[in-house]
Simulated assay, not measured.
Amino acid sequence: MVPIVLEVICSLVTWLCLYSCFCQWNKQRSCEWSCRLVTLLHGLIVTLLSGYVALLDGPWPLTHAGSANTSLQIHVLSLTLGYFLFDLGWCLYFQTEGALMLFHHTLSICGMIMVLGLGKSATEVNAVVFVSEITNPLLQSRWFLREMGCYHTFLGELVDFFFVLLFLVLRIGGGAWIMFAMLTSPEPNWLLKAGGLAMYLVSLGFMVEICRFVRRKMGKNHLWWTRLRRVDVPGRTNGHLAAH
C-alpha cells in the first residue's frame, strides 16, 4: 500500500507543478485558464490510458467486475486520483463549481481510494473513468473556444455535437452497462456498488443539464434560421412580389 500512496502523492505534486508552470507561462490569463489546461491534458492522457486498459489490456469490465487489480490499472487510477485531489482542492479554494460537481469529485476520490485499498475492482472503476473522461477534452475545448471568441463558429458547433453524442452514448449508455455488470456481480464490495450507483445518478444529473442546454441551443438556432429566412425571402403582397 505504501508504494501506491507514494505514487498518488507524486501524481498530485506533478499536477500541482504543471499548474504552476502554466500560471507562469500564461501570466496574462486567469488562474482558471491554467487549471483548465491541466484538466485538458489529464483528460487526454487518462482517456488514452484507461481506454487501452479497458479495451485492450483487460480484463473485460463487463465480465470480470471485482477482479484483482493489475499493475497498469493501479498506475492509471493513482495518476487520476492525484489529479482529482488537485482539482477538488482548486475548486474549493476558488469556489468555482457547484454542489453537483463537488459531489462528483468527492465520490470519485472515495471510490478510487477504496479500490486501491481493497486491491480489487479497478477493472470496472477504470472503465467508468474511461467513459467519464472521454468527454472532458471536448468540454475544455468548448470553454477555450468561448474565451477566445471562437465558440459561435462551425468548430464550436462540432465540439458541442460530439460532446453531447459521446456523453449520451458512452457516459450514460456505456455507464449503465458497466453499472449493471457491477451490481449483478457478487464480487464487488457493496459499498463500492452504492458509490457506483451514486456516481451514475450524478451523471444523470449532468445529463439533465445537458438536455436543457441542447433545448436552449436548438431554440436559438431555430430563431436564427427563422430570422434568416425572413431576410432572404422577398416580401409578398396578394401573391405578387412586393415593390422594392
Rank of each mutant, 00 (worst) to 15 (best):
C10N: 14
L12W: 11
T14L: 13
W15M: 07
F22G: 05
N26W: 15
N26S: 15
Q28C: 15
S34G: 06
C35Q: 03
H42E: 10
L49N: 00
S50T: 11
V53K: 14
A54F: 14
P61K: 05
G66P: 07
N69L: 06
V76K: 07
L77I: 08
S78W: 10
L79K: 05
L81C: 07
W90Y: 05
Y93C: 12
Q95R: 13
F103C: 12
H105K: 06
L107V: 00
S108D: 01
S108T: 04
C110P: 05
C110F: 06
T123K: 00
S132P: 03
N136I: 04
L138G: 02
W143K: 00
R146S: 05
Y151A: 03
Y151W: 09
F154Q: 07
L158F: 14
F162A: 10
F162Y: 13
F163A: 10
L165T: 13
F167Y: 10
T184L: 04
S185Q: 12
S185T: 11
P186L: 13
L191G: 09
L191M: 14
L192E: 03
Y200N: 02
V208R: 14
R215M: 09
M218C: 14
G219Y: 12
K220I: 06
K220P: 04
T226L: 07
R230I: 10
V231W: 12
V233C: 15
R236K: 14
L241E: 04
